[in-house]
Nucleic acid binder design. Structure first.
Length: 294
DNA sequence: AATTGCTGCAACCGCAGGCGG
DNA sequence: CCCGCCTGCGGTTGCAGCAAT
């Protein structure tokens, strides 16, 4: 497909970089209510100053309730390694075999952990230093998952560039690495997989919403929202967001707000209360079940 | 305590493929 | 068959957090 193709969006009119909690909320709410039939048109309809691709990526990788968060289990690692041997860097194909995992996530895990470990195994085997090999592997990485090569002949014969070795993951050890606690820009309202999900996440993330909004990181376009806003029935919700923004943009009020957060009751309990309020609000708004059911 | 280097995650970019007109 | 639009994919980069010095 040759050049001259129109860009997917006007780069000068879209926001880039980390997503703010308010943006996440808009996207979540919009998709819950209207679905995502047309990613290209979605940002405008939802009142987001984002590229459609960016919205899609954000939804698929982080906001989608089906996305499993948290550490990769040894079984998942093993699956990735096996599939990578046969499929190469076909991350989406690999992801299709790992429910709840996204191609981006798998790609990151491969590039940051598994690839290095496999290389270590390969190097160690090439030099025949089996003894040091194992101990160095265990101590050389943030992961405690150990690798043991069982078939050197396969080294380097894989599909992709990173097809190094056939390895077996020890399932006795637990992975110590995992997805970093969600950054301030990462919000996930619901948790569909309790097993590997840090249950404390929602609280922290909703509280992070306050932090982020405090920073005035919200870049909604009222003009855009006003144009054929499909969410007219959600005026209250958007008004709430707008009020929150304006409230927190007032410096004096902001200080007051922050002061109240660290009042006599303690920062934690206060935050918790705020978070609960927000959670129940969002659950209502998104027509989810009561807290803790998702 | 300050600085530097490393690690890992989130997000962007460009291209490829599918599909409809 | 050609063209243009849209989505999806894979590579790459930016940056925050952490560890080491």
């Amino acid at each position: 497909m040759g050049g001259g193709r129109a860009p997917c969006c006007d780069k000068s009119k879209v926001k880039k970089g980390p997503w703010s909690p308010a943006e996440d909320l808009r996207l979540i709410t919009f998709i819950h209510k209207h679905g995502h039939g047309n990613w290209r048109a979605l940002p405008k309809q939802a009142g987001l100053l984002r590229c459609g691709k960016s919205c899609r990526l954000r939804w698929i990788n982080y906001l989608n309730p089906d996305v499993k968060r948290g550490n990769f289990s040894p079984e998942e690692e093993q699956t990735i390694i096996k599939l990578h041997q046969s499929l190469g860097n076909k991350w989406s194909k690999i992801a299709s075999h790992l429910p709840g995992r996204t191609d981006n996530e798998i790609k990151n895990v491969w590039n940051t952990h598994l690839k290095k470990k496999i290389l270590l195994v390969k190097d160690a085997n090439l030099y025949g230093d089996e003894t040091n090999n194992e101990s160095s592997m265990i101590s050389s990485s943030s992961s405690s998952t150990s690798f043991m090569s069982c078939d050197n002949n396969n080294i380097g014969n894989g599909v992709g560039d990173d097809q190094e070795a056939r390895v077996v993951l020890s399932t006795q050890c637990s992975p110590s690495y995992g997805l970093k606690e969600a950054s301030s820009s990462s919000s996930s309202i619901s948790n569909s997989s309790a097993d590997q999900v840090d249950v404390s996440r929602p609280r922290e993330e909703v509280s992070s919403l306050f932090d982020e909004v405090n920073k005035q990181d919200v870049c909604m376009s009222d003009e855009v929202v006003g144009i054929g806003d499909p969410l007219e029935s959600d005026d209250d919700f958007w008004n709430m967001l707008a009020n929150l923004d304006s409230f927190l943009s007032n410096e004096a009020q902001l200080q007051e707000f922050q002061a109240s957060q660290s009042s006599n009751f303690g920062e934690e309990s206060d935050r918790e209360n705020e978070c609960r309020k927000w959670l129940s609000y969002f659950e209502n708004e998104l027509e989810l079940e009561a807290t803790g059911n998702r």
